[in-house]
Design a protein around this nucleic acid. Structure first.
Lengths: 233, 233
DNA sequence: AAATTAAGTGTTAATTTGACATTAATTTTG
DNA sequence: CAAAATTAATGTCAAATTAACACTTAATTT
């Protein structure tokens, strides 16, 4: 049987706010749009949702097409569907994706003209894509306040000064590195390696990697108004 | 000009997880579905997104149609678009809405056969609506851990024991009411009224109302890994 | 008037936080 | 090759917050 015959159909798209960290600052990966309208202008990477896939799947596909990467950290951070947002009615679901940009740099797809820009100094974008970036930033901040997701922006092996500067630039603050490091270490999230990063300082900073068990546990562990033992999921 | 001519169109719907609190436990408002398929089975209130409105707007419209209430606290908490989730391909955007159920009880629309059920003991629902409820619950918990949104479930005037038991049932825990109340009061969020609720105890508990200025401030104020002064937005 | 009930205030020890000082491991420079 | 420079890492301590628990208070019921 064929239901919903007279219901309105919509063009459904996904757009990806792809964020990376270069050790100094946050970057965003933008593409030169390949199709009309607004062809050749800078925009977020996006695409339409096919009939045989979920929006999430579409976002992964689009991401992979651009970067060749799979299983990236990805999260919905908004839905843009105001009638006038494009010439033609398109509802767009926005995802932000976190990439370890150091690993990545090389593998840029040849099919797209893509480029990393400083997150706070990128070219003007089409439609409401700048608003999409704003909500992505906001979601990133909120989420990272509860969950240790910023590690998704770092290589497998990272140093404490690296994470500290990542937090500093996500929240645009100065951290007391000593207190920060103590707090972080006490979480049990980090495993110290027997190896130092000598790139960035004379003394060198020890590498750490994530303790994945704790990483997963940490989810839902900082409830306000509630004693910390109270989490049961 | 007419772009995107050959792109696939999708049926786009919204579904609402409508939550209420009766002083004892959380409840969910369900409707008997009016259209085929699955006509007359219990489901979330939903509807299709019209061509001239955003999904958010559609959710408000649908909510108002059922409850006659406007400006409810509402938030997107998931997108369900797996190809096989309904007989026909429909992508559904899920919102949860918080209602002060005590005020509400009466104004149930006549058009719909709607009924409040205990959140943890409701009839079987169509399609993936039970999964929608699960994600709504999860979003509610996460969100309420950062933001004081649970007040949206209470009347304008409420008592501290009321909020405490609300938190207890959202997180399924026992709270030390004394510590909880002290913590809450120290937030500056509450304004004490000169009036007591005598319904629920002999001594009676003072009514409070929200300090809306602080309420808005409280957003983004509990960052983990960051000193509390560091918020700048 | 005494018993009962739940609200609300106090007390204290343990933990966490924030501010700051010091030591340690390197490399660069003179 | 020693001294200076740089940044990592550890240490200290007072202040604030939390968690656990005892007690007082206001009102109703018996």
């Amino acid at each position: 049987m064929d239901f919903y015959k007279n219901e309105p159909q919509t063009l459904l798209a996904v757009d990806c706010v792809i964020l990376g960290f270069n050790g100094e600052s946050l970057e965003i990966l933008l593409v030169k749009r390949g199709i009309a309208p607004e062809r050749n202008k800078w925009s977020l990477m996006g695409g339409f949702v096919y009939e045989d896939e979920s929006p999430e799947k579409a976002a992964s596909r689009v991401l992979k097409k651009l970067t060749n990467l799979e299983d990236l950290y990805m999260e919905n951070c908004g839905i843009f569907g105001e009638p006038g947002r494009e010439e033609r009615r398109v509802v767009s679901i926005v995802y932000f994706a976190l990439i370890d940009a150091t690993q990545y740099r090389h593998i840029l797809s040849e099919e797209y003209e893509a480029k990393w820009f400083p997150l706070d100094k990128h070219p003007k974008l089409i439609f409401d894509h700048e608003d999409m970036i704003s909500t992505a930033k906001h979601t990133l901040r909120t989420k990272a306040a509860l969950y240790p997701i910023l590690f998704e922006l770092l290589p497998e092996k990272f140093t404490i000064p690296q994470i500290a500067s990542l937090y500093e630039c996500v929240y645009n603050i100065d951290l007391d590195k000593r207190n920060f490091s103590r707090k972080l270490l006490s979480s049990g999230l980090l495993i110290k390696l027997n190896e130092k990063d000598k790139e960035n300082s004379r003394k060198g900073a020890f590498f750490y990697r994530l303790n994945m068990d704790i990483y997963k546990e940490k989810i839902m562990s900082f409830l306000r108004y509630l004693p910390s033992w109270s989490v049961d999921e």
